[in-house]
């Protein structure tokens, strides 16, 4: 039987639109961390948008189709068993499409019809397993494996781990979660805590791990998003965090953008730094700040990381 450890050594990599734009540093740090850990990433050929929240709002079945096309290419053209998506939105949508195609005949019919017309293989539920970057490192390497490969340490850096909405909700599209010890929890996720803890960080008790940053309306209802983000930033600071670690490009850019907006528009400054968890892991693995794209973040943490002796 192949274990997750073997299965995750070489996976299809689905970066998604955001990682080619504003979340370039997440893309870069994910790939660099993969190299440092000896995990292979093969980018999904000619991928398309997963449909995101926006297409889902126009028509959920179209989102199912768009996500299914990505999985179909990974399964049939690339013969891969696992698709890894670091973006919570992409990850969520692929999982949702997987669930719908396993349970809803209408979704199967629509995907089949659209795939045939578009001229590519139809995705069938179960052909690939979709995982998040957190699953990839947690099960492909594990905490102990990570400790063995560390070249530095996060030196007791106080971190609030922020998971956002799409990684855990709704529960039914994540059948592998909430299965007891070793599995991820949807009410109190801990993979990021575990990994960063293994890399030397101190995880603060952060009550808003799965709170919403208002990412869906970050531009269309900005005041709402700013309020929601400010709650998160303040709760992290109140918990004693120096850094908020993120695992989603929408959350990350939302936190960065509304931190600036809260300061400039509402006179509510906050100091907490915002970094992708892969950037923090990369630094602990001995990569340079530039290699993990610290300079590409809006939240300026370079000086702080140097002061701490982490960068």
């Amino acid at each position: 039987m192949t274990t997750a450890k073997d299965k995750y050594q070489k996976v299809a990599y689905y970066p998604g639109c955001a990682l080619e734009g504003t979340a370039h540093s997440y893309n870069r740090s994910t790939q660099e961390v993969g190299k440092a850990l000896g995990l292979d990433l093969v980018e999904v050929k000619n991928w398309n948008c997963c449909g995101a929240m926006e297409v889902k709002n126009i028509d959920p079945k179209l989102q199912t189709y768009l996500s299914s096309r990505v999985m179909a290419i990974a399964a049939t053209e690339m013969k891969m068993d696992v698709v890894m998506a670091p973006c919570n939105g992409c990850y969520h949508n692929l999982k949702k499409a997987e669930y719908d195609l396993a349970h809803d005949p209408t979704s199967v019919e629509v995907v089949d019809r659209l795939s045939q017309k578009a001229g590519h293989a139809t995705y069938e539920a179960g052909q690939v397993e979709t995982i998040h970057a957190l699953d990839w490192i947690m099960h492909g390497i594990g905490e102990d494996g990570l400790k063995q490969r560390l070249k530095g340490s996060l030196q007791g850096l106080k971190v609030a781990n922020y998971y956002g909405c799409m990684y855990t909700r709704p529960r039914h599209i994540f059948p592998e979660k909430d299965k007891g010890p070793g599995t991820e929890s949807t009410s109190k996720p801990h993979y990021m805590d575990d990994l960063l803890g293994a890399a030397g960080a101190v995880n603060v008790e952060f009550p808003l791990k799965t709170a919403c940053c208002g990412g869906a309306h970050t531009l269309s209802d900005s005041d709402m998003s700013t309020k929601l983000v400010l709650n998160i930033l303040r709760a992290a600071e109140a918990a004693g965090a120096e850094v908020i670690a993120t695992e989603c490009p929408t959350c990350h850019s939302g936190l960065e953008m509304h931190q600036v907006r809260a300061e400039k528009k509402f006179g509510q400054p906050t100091k907490v730094k915002i970094l992708y968890f892969t950037q923090l892991l990369g630094l602990a693995l001995g990569l340079s700040p530039r290699q993990v794209g610290v300079h590409e973040n809006i939240s300026d943490s370079l000086g702080f990381l140097r002061e701490k002796g982490i960068a």
Partner: peptide, 9 residues
């Protein structure tokens, strides 16, 4: 509605 899915959960 920000689609955080807390209600659906």
């Amino acid at each position: 509605c920000v689609s955080c899915n807390k209600c659906t959960y």
